Amino acid sequence: RTRTSFTAEQLYRLEMEFQRCQYVVGRERTELARQLNLSETQVKVWFQNRRTKQKK
């Protein structure tokens, strides 16, 4: 599997969503992935990694 390189715009949007809600599921995840031109899996994993980073 190749590592995803997020654009600055994608990271900004993901961070904004994370500040709003640390868990994104269902339709929200589908819509966010579509808007950012990413897969739902990429969005899901980004949120998982971001929550892990916050715990440290």
Results as ranks from 00 to 15, higher is better:
residue 53 K to V: 14
residue 6 F to W: 11
residue 56 K to I: 12
residue 17 E to Y: 08
residue 22 Q to C: 11
residue 13 R to G: 08
residue 6 F to D: 04
residue 18 F to L: 00
residue 45 V to D: 15
residue 32 L to A: 01
residue 24 V to W: 05
residue 42 Q to V: 09
residue 12 Y to M: 14
residue 13 R to N: 07
residue 51 R to Y: 11
residue 26 G to R: 06
residue 23 Y to C: 09
residue 12 Y to C: 09
residue 18 F to R: 01
residue 27 R to D: 15
residue 3 R to M: 15
residue 19 Q to Y: 03
residue 42 Q to M: 07
residue 23 Y to L: 13
residue 8 A to K: 05
residue 9 E to G: 05
residue 39 S to L: 03
residue 38 L to I: 06
residue 3 R to D: 15
residue 54 Q to R: 07
residue 18 F to E: 00
residue 2 T to G: 13
residue 25 V to E: 15
residue 35 Q to N: 08
residue 49 N to G: 11
residue 41 T to M: 14
residue 13 R to A: 14
residue 20 R to S: 12
residue 46 W to T: 00
residue 9 E to R: 04
residue 54 Q to M: 12
residue 17 E to G: 02
residue 6 F to Y: 10
residue 35 Q to P: 00
residue 2 T to Y: 06
residue 40 E to A: 08
residue 11 L to P: 01
residue 25 V to D: 15
residue 36 L to Q: 03
residue 22 Q to H: 07
residue 26 G to Q: 07
residue 28 E to D: 11
residue 41 T to N: 10
residue 7 T to G: 06
residue 45 V to T: 14
residue 55 K to V: 14
residue 19 Q to K: 13
residue 15 E to I: 01
residue 47 F to V: 01
residue 20 R to C: 06
residue 19 Q to A: 12
residue 20 R to D: 14
residue 36 L to H: 03
residue 53 K to R: 11
residue 51 R to P: 02
residue 31 E to Y: 00
residue 53 K to Y: 15
residue 38 L to G: 01
residue 38 L to F: 02
residue 22 Q to I: 05
residue 48 Q to D: 10
residue 55 K to N: 14
residue 11 L to M: 09
residue 36 L to S: 02
residue 8 A to M: 10
residue 6 F to L: 12
residue 13 R to K: 12
residue 23 Y to Q: 14
residue 22 Q to P: 10
residue 28 E to C: 05
residue 8 A to Y: 09
residue 40 E to G: 05
residue 51 R to D: 09
residue 24 V to Y: 04
residue 52 T to S: 11
residue 55 K to R: 08
residue 47 F to Y: 05
residue 37 N to I: 07
residue 5 S to A: 13
residue 39 S to V: 04
residue 38 L to C: 08
residue 41 T to V: 10
residue 6 F to I: 11
residue 1 R to D: 15
residue 22 Q to M: 07
residue 32 L to I: 04
residue 31 E to Q: 05
residue 1 R to L: 02
residue 36 L to N: 00
residue 44 K to V: 12
residue 25 V to R: 09
residue 28 E to L: 05
residue 51 R to V: 06
residue 24 V to M: 09
residue 48 Q to H: 04
residue 16 M to I: 06
residue 46 W to F: 05
residue 39 S to E: 10
residue 2 T to I: 11
residue 22 Q to K: 10
residue 3 R to Q: 14
residue 55 K to D: 15
residue 8 A to T: 14
residue 13 R to P: 01
residue 34 R to H: 07
